[in-house]
Design a protein around this nucleic acid. Structure first.
Lengths: 197, 197
DNA sequence: CAATTAAGGTACATGATGTATCTTATTTCC
DNA sequence: GGAAATAAGATACATCATGTACCTTAATTG
């Protein structure tokens, strides 16, 4: 006989799904503990026991969705594509899949909170940045090995692909197409990364 | 004899200054109509008569501060600097002065609202984008005239300087120094804009 | 100086917060 | 199997902000 009361993971999942549903349909600002509790058919008390603030719930929600959808860290998904141009396309493709997996509304909410409450997300972001830079260092090493470049990428340059996709997804709210990614590589990234001084 | 009650512009200014003060010291989320009214020593009713929502107040506040501090549109401030590199430095310098004039906290709030409520700020942003692109078209024309380039800039490329400064000011919350602007030009913008295909 | 306009004040229903306290269902483990 | 521990669910309360309504009072206008 199945129990009447949900507990532990099952309840957790119900809460997170309820929160996601609210964010997607009504926006992050409507994701109050009160509404999440109602939507998840539980009580506010239960939410308060797990999360101190909506920001904490948001944080948990992003982790939950990204790990489920991506199946691992971005850097492990990267495969050598045989040329600098193809490697860059691979990087932006992977990062865009991450945005699509988590969802634009959710990522916008994260950016909002990040801009409001820098400290709260700082560590998380630094770790993300680290992983991004590491991916670009692989691209750099590949290109050097192939003889496509001889110079090093700078930190600022290595942040570029991620910053630009962030802008497009989170600020401009555009749905990013494959065509966009190609133009991004050809018009911006390739000139920056293949430039010889 | 001066009147006891402030009216019209004087009152308007008091409200906007109060709102700015709250945003700077406590953050945008604390800028409730209730607090603004208290801070400006007026009543909530007065605020409601002028602005429907905090977003409208925010919008008015940015216009108020940017026009006061910049003294005009950015594009009118641009002067030919004699080389593509110097022109690019001029562009990012002007745009950064705009951020500094309005204030990072305020611009973060705008981005937050923009990401929440795309439609509300859409027109405003498109006009800003237009003006930015026009400034870059001048840079392009200058460079062609000097024989530094022969190709056209793409739309995506022309958005680049503004997007990157936006990221730095609004998302990363860094204080942007002259050294940063120089690196931005040398490591990213110049390779993109001087690239010959 | 009367009429109009706008500021200032009060009140109320609503919804969300954060906290506290209590009951009740479900596990855990002896 | 049953007592103890644990976590869910329910209720209540003070606080704060919202949006709206209605009223009074000061200042400007014509």
């Amino acid at each position: 006989m199945k129990s009447e009361r949900r507990r532990g993971e099952e309840l957790e999942k119900a809460i997170l799904d309820a929160a996601y549903e609210i964010i997607e349909t009504s926006g992050y600002e409507e994701m109050t503990f009160q509404r999440v509790a109602r939507q998840a058919q539980t009580s506010r008390t239960v939410i308060y026991r797990r999360y101190e603030t909506p920001v904490d719930l948001l944080h948990a929600l992003v982790l939950y969705r990204s790990t489920r959808a991506m199946g691992g860290r971005m850097i492990d998904l990267f495969r050598d594509q045989g040329s600098l141009r193809a490697d860059l396309l691979e990087v932006v493709g992977i990062y865009q899949r991450f945005f699509d997996a988590v969802g634009q509304k959710l990522m916008s909410a994260v950016m909002t909170e990040f801009s409001r409450n820098y400290e709260r997300f700082r560590d998380w972001f630094e770790r993300a940045l680290d992983s991004n830079v590491r991916m670009m260092k692989i691209v750099e090493a590949n290109a050097k090995r192939r003889g496509e470049i001889t110079h090093d990428f700078t930190e600022m340059q290595m942040r570029l692909p991620f910053d630009l996709l962030r802008i497009e997804n989170v600020i401009r709210h555009e749905r990013v197409t494959a065509a966009y990614l190609t133009r991004l590589v050809d018009e911006v990234l390739l000139p920056v990364f293949s430039k010889k001084h």
